[in-house]
């Protein structure tokens, strides 16, 4: 660091000597090279982290590569993709992924908007209610899955079974009867707080005077919500949708700890299918082909997210 300061000092002297007309030299300019020097480690690390594994995945997806049969690494071009796409689990994996992502998005955004608007009004214990509502987000995925599976959904000792019995109904074995729905409920429970957290924050910047003016002009609660609140929430909703999509496309721990993809392929999503190909059947080639399909899907969501965030970057003063 000692060299850099002397360097910039001499630069400053040169600058002031060269242009005597300008009253003060801008001292930030001379260190531009330092700026790129400091950013290099992060960029390099992330570049390696992204490029190397991705290149390997692409390579693996084009060769025959099973850990059980070492040495037989022939180039097979798109055979792995063909096998992955025609696998019994593929259609189930894709449709379950889409159903999961879609349902969780609809539930979290709809309930998130409703709850945020509700708790945005003032009432007793607002702070505590907020803390209670966002808590599930901080529970680790393996804990929330197992708590729901064993303490809430369990057909004998679960809380829901007790409620069903109280009303004289036969308790449901959730994970056998509605496996995918059960997982959707757990995941929506985990992500609803995320939506609430973002929406509540966004609502705080909503113009109160504008609302008051609309009310004085005779606008009802519903039209205030529809014409003022909802447009104000458009961006946070977009952000929630895209960030959740990215995370939910690779949902894994919740399925791993509750159903293990079953019964059959009923709760197997793309991520779990690839995991079972890769680490249970040791078929690296096919798992890599599946991985690339997942990357393409995520990129579609990411493309739009980057645009929204990029826009935000330029909006900044």
């Amino acid at each position: 660091m000692g060299t850099s300061i002397t360097m910039s000092n001499t630069n400053q002297h040169n600058a002031s000597a060269a242009s005597t007309k300008t009253p003060l030299p801008t001292p930030l300019k001379p260190r531009k090279s330092l700026g790129s020097f400091l950013v290099t480690p992060s960029v390099l690390i992330l570049l390696v982290w992204m490029i190397v594994p991705l290149a390997m995945t692409i390579y693996f997806s084009l060769i025959r590569y099973n850990l059980l049969y070492p040495g037989d690494n022939e180039l097979v071009w798109l055979e792995n993709f063909e096998f992955f796409v025609t696998d019994d689990g593929f259609f189930a994996g894709i449709s379950n992924t889409l159903i999961l992502v879609g349902s969780v998005l609809v539930i979290t955004v709809a309930m998130g908007v409703g709850i945020s608007v509700l708790i945005n009004s003032s009432f007793w214990g607002q702070g505590i209610v907020r803390v209670l509502l966002i808590s599930p987000f901080f529970i680790m995925p393996t804990v929330s899955s197992l708590v729901w599976k064993n303490l809430i959904f369990h057909p004998v000792s679960g809380v829901l079974a007790a409620i069903w019995q109280f009303f004289g109904a036969t308790p449901i074995d959730w994970f056998t009867t509605y496996p995918l729905l059960s997982i959707i409920i757990i995941v929506a429970w985990q992500w609803l707080p995320f939506a609430i957290l973002l929406f509540v924050t966004a609502l705080q910047s909503l113009d109160q005077e504008q609302q008051e003016a609309a009310r004085l002009d005779g606008a009802g609660s519903w039209s205030i919500f529809y014409y003022l609140t909802l447009p104000h929430l458009a961006r946070p909703i977009a952000v929630v949708v895209m960030i959740e999509t990215i995370f939910l496309l690779s949902l894994f721990a919740e399925i791993f700890t509750t159903t293990g993809g079953g019964p059959g392929y009923e709760t197997t999503n793309l991520a779990y299918l690839i995991y079972s190909q890769a680490l249970l059947q040791f078929d690296v080639g096919m798992a890599s082909a599946g991985g690339l399909i997942a990357v393409i899907l995520a990129n579609i969501a990411a493309f739009f997210l980057v645009r929204v965030i990029g826009k935000n970057l330029t909006d900044k003063p």
């Binding site: 990215i246 496309l249 995991y275 890769a278 690296v284 798992a287 997942a294 990357v295 969501a301 980057v306």
Partner: peptide
């Protein structure tokens, strides 16, 4: 933005290489 986009790479996509 490029840094953020690395965050959007699904982990299953690179599970095999990282494992190996």
């Amino acid at each position: 933005l490029w840094m953020l986009s690395t965050k959007m790479l699904p982990p299953v996509g690179v599970l095999m290489p990282i494992y190996l």
